[in-house]
């Protein structure tokens, strides 16, 4: 489904990604872990097409097409979804309008008819239940005044409505209490299908207790330095990142 080959990227002239290669197949959950500043979020943003990041080399192929050649909205229309680490507030645009606009643009791109507001509300009702959100929040401005937990649940709600082929969750667990974490993880698991795939970007292992990965990758200094199964996440939780960094010949800085 997704093939990243030797991807390099920079922001403001500083190279952040130093040659990432990763293959994700349909039905898989990949966890990308790593210490702060390792490039995890950059990778997520680059895959979504954030204009601040410049791809300086490598390729990304998504379902046989050149992902890097697509505008962000086209990527979304092709089924790529990024759950933001810091969801953006848009005062003045209701959640209902925002979601329906996105849903219809994606349908339009697929050659399908747009859905009218009433039918869309019907469709929303079970998606709302999935993330335990009240219908009233549809009439609130997008993320405006939402608590941290509400923002993250709203990301998963959008994911549930847009039904992406590839979902990238960027630090979705950060700032969540245990209940919100459970709700978010439940939502992600419920949306899992043999035809889609999920990349979970996280610093901590605790989200992976709820969303169990098939593959775990450790990112450091802008490249993947170790890959393994779900047990790798547990080992990182127990031992920290230093030993992996040392294995890879990277200075940890932790004892400096």
């Amino acid at each position: 489904m997704l093939k990243i080959d030797n991807l390099t990227a920079s922001v403001g002239g500083t190279q952040i990604l130093n040659g990432i290669s990763l293959t994700v197949n349909a039905g898989e959950v990949h966890a990308i872990m790593g210490p702060n500043g390792s490039g995890k979020s950059t990778l997520a943003q680059v895959l979504a097409g954030h204009p601040a990041y410049e791809v300086t080399g490598g390729t990304v192929t998504f379902q046989g097409a050149d992902l890097l050649d697509m505008d962000p909205e086209v990527r979304a229309q092709h089924g790529v979804f990024l759950a933001f680490q810091y969801p953006i507030e848009i005062p003045g645009v209701t959640n209902a309008y925002f979601l329906r606009a996105a849903y219809n643009e994606i349908r339009k791109a697929k050659g399908l008819d747009e859905v009218d507001p009433m039918d869309f509300l019907d469709l929303m009702s079970d998606r709302l239940k999935l993330v335990e959100m009240d219908e009233a929040m549809l009439q609130r401005s997008v993320n405006a005044g939402f608590s941290g937990g509400e923002k993250k649940r709203n990301e998963i709600l959008q994911m549930a409505v847009l039904d992406p082929t590839l979902a990238i969750l960027d630090e979705t667990d950060s700032g969540l209490d245990i209940d919100a974490l459970r709700i978010v993880a439940h939502g992600v698991n419920a949306l899992k299908k043999p035809t889609n795939a999920t990349i979970v970007v996280t610093h901590y292992q605790r989200l992976l207790n709820h969303i169990v990965p098939d593959h775990v990758h450790v990112l450091a200094a802008g490249r993947i330095i170790k890959s393994g199964g779900k047990e790798l996440a547990l080992e990182l939780e127990a031992r920290g990142y230093d030993w992996v960094l040392e294995e890879a010949g990277l200075a940890t800085g932790a004892h400096a």
Binding site: P72, E73, F98
Partner: peptide, 20 residues
Amino acid sequence: FYMKSRGISAEHARRLLVYA
């Protein structure tokens, strides 16, 4: 960018932001 990342076209996103 947030809107575009949800599939909303650039033109529609800008129109919505003016409206907002």
